[in-house]
Design a binder for these strands. Structure first.
Lengths: 348, 348
DNA sequence: TTTTAACACGCAAACGTTTTCGTGACTTTC
DNA sequence: GAAAGTCACGAAAACGTTTGCGTGTTAAAA
């Protein structure tokens, strides 16, 4: 087992100083051609590579970015990571991940763990618990220490930093408009409680699309699910409530759901009730994941371009990290990613 | 903006030496109670935290593990990551990810990038390209430098290291046995080409289950897909071939597919041909992902316990990292994770 | 022959820690 | 009152780099 070789060892072997070795490897013109040749040959032979940790310490720069998300077994978040990793790698950075598991304290702990020198900046999406507690001190403290943060998807206006968000409002509005254009007259909305900004905006989009078409929104057609429940329980309850809704309102001919799973559940319930999708009832979901693509019928959805979000977030962050000349007037950007309606079989 | 404070700064403020500060923070009994109190109060006030990079350099230990996988937008791999992250965090480690994107060269580059001091060990699953090229030099070189590696799922016997694998053979065998017990007499197999060990083992399990029940395997009932194609093209081709298979062999009453998507495609084709699942034809897939759970009918699958694999891999790796006393006789373990047949609606 | 300049290299500091060892100032002991 | 011991702290090395600057040697210029 041949351990990694260091400058010091090369220097000793070749009977020169450490600095000479370092300079020779960089083709410094302070060093004679002979020595350069000798050192480089030796270094190549022993496969010398500078130690990243030592470089990080010296340069006060790790070339690593931290990403903190609520959950990784999730199509949307994993696509974002892929985007982040893509541009990070292209620009010479590594990516280190932390999972908050939707918990406030895990989010704080993870951030503190990484903020002590391990990374140059954060990309993160808030946990539901943080959103509920509205305690943002850890973000501000981190930024006060000069560590840049880029937030994506689940953001909040109280925090001043760069952001990448989806145009939830227009995405929802367009989806509902599509249903209306497809002759739906009684469109139900299946959404979550409002504390996540994302859910609120999508609801607003739904409402405005209706109003634009002179349709009076009916509160009874709006189903708000509590998504803090256990997953399995949640799902059962969801289907039950959808079924009630459909039974109480036979006139429903369109459904807009704020996520994939809700849309799928709606389709499942519809089928169970003998309704045909899309002939009797048309369905559109949000988030373009595997489920939408492979369900039967496949689901028309609002695509969020998750990977693109990750890419933009990474670019934003790295730009800020590399903007050495501390602009005193901190300027924060919010990048809005446009959604796209992917039409499949669940609409006409 | 208050930058992170260092020992040196505390020392200067309090007019003591750096070593005194360091010791005071550790409650060393070399330091007087007075000084300890003073230093700790000051440190708390300024929220002092030791710099991880400096510690890593000093200790020659980063408390970070690297994980390299072919793809992250994938239920199986993201579940593995979740498992790794879970135990890594519990044991005080961070996780840094690298995506090979199924490419040999990206795998090599990623490994080299991380192997230069950034991490203490690797957890990885080989890319398809590496599997095809059978070039394993980068693994061996990394291990020669004293960096431990744990491989999972896609492994190869030529590489001597710790491994965590799924019992693909018995998983497949049990699945097929289940179909046979459910009175299936003509069971088709939809699989990939053999270069991935995983595919080969599942095929063997299928064959042995048939033989155990005195059923002669028929080559015409085995469909081997080339999965190196572009995803969309692949899918279309897949459905076409399954349809041909079903039409040519109307007697097929059971299907075992080596992954979720193949199983779903089989169900889709069956439905299109007017066949009822599970009454006319029963289907079992491999890999317990979201698709299986939420398809209609929901899919009976062989669950791989991906998260558990990640947890075991992380434990294995950290155990090795922390086993200081270099056992000369390197002993490598292979942990086999048992599969579990999750019965849903696609079987009787 | 003396001065100057170029060359090729080494020294040392710095990044932020931890830890071993040395050392003054007191206190105790006989 | 001298020897020994205790206490509380500082100096310095080490981890592996990079880099500004100083310096000895040789060659060119005066």
């Amino acid at each position: 087992m041949r351990k990694k070789i260091t400058l010091k060892q090369i220097a000793r072997e070749l009977d020169v100083s450490i600095s000479t070795v370092s300079k020779a490897l960089k083709n410094s013109k302070e060093i004679s051609a002979d020595t350069i040749q000798k050192v480089q040959a030796f270094a190549k032979l022993y496969n010398y590579r500078p130690n990243n940790i030592a470089l990080s310490l010296k340069n006060r720069k790790t070339n690593t970015i931290g990403i903190i998300i609520p959950e990784i077994v999730h199509h949307f978040f994993s696509k974002v990571i892929r985007g982040v990793e893509l541009v990070a790698n292209q620009r010479g950075y590594n990516v280190i991940i932390g999972l908050s598991n939707e918990s406030f304290s895990k989010e704080v702990i993870n951030m503190e763990m990484l903020a002590n020198g391990s990374i140059d900046g954060f990309i993160l999406s808030m946990s539901k618990e943080t959103l509920l507690q509205q305690d943002y001190h850890h973000y501000n403290e981190t930024m006060n220490q000069g560590m840049p943060i880029v937030m994506f998807d689940r953001v909040v206006s109280e925090i001043k930093c760069d952001k990448v968000i989806v145009d939830d409002f227009n995405g929802a509005k367009n989806a509902v408009q599509k249903l209306i254009s497809n002759k739906c007259e009684h469109i139900a909305l299946i959404t979550t409680r409002d504390y996540v900004s994302v859910g609120r905006l999508r609801t607003q989009g739904y409402l405005e699309a209706l109003e634009d078409n002179n349709i009076t929104p009916q509160a009874e057609l709006i189903l708000k699910m509590d998504d803090t429940l256990d997953y399995e329980v949640h799902l059962e309850k969801l289907e039950g409530e959808i079924e009630q809704l459909f039974k109480a309102h036979k006139e429903i001919d369109g459904v807009f759901a704020v996520n994939e799973l809700y849309a799928l559940s709606a389709m499942k319930v519809a089928r169970r009730m003998g309704l045909n999708v899309p002939n009797d009832i048309q369905v559109i979901g949000f988030t373009d994941g595997v489920l939408s693509k492979h369900s039967t019928p496949s689901l028309t959805t609002v695509s969020q371009h998750a990977q693109l979000m990750g890419e933009r977030a990474a670019d934003l962050l790295i730009d800020k990290i590399e903007a050495e000349f501390e602009i005193e007037e901190e300027q924060f950007q919010t990048v809005v990613i446009n959604t796209e309606l992917v039409e499949r079989e669940s609409t006409k």
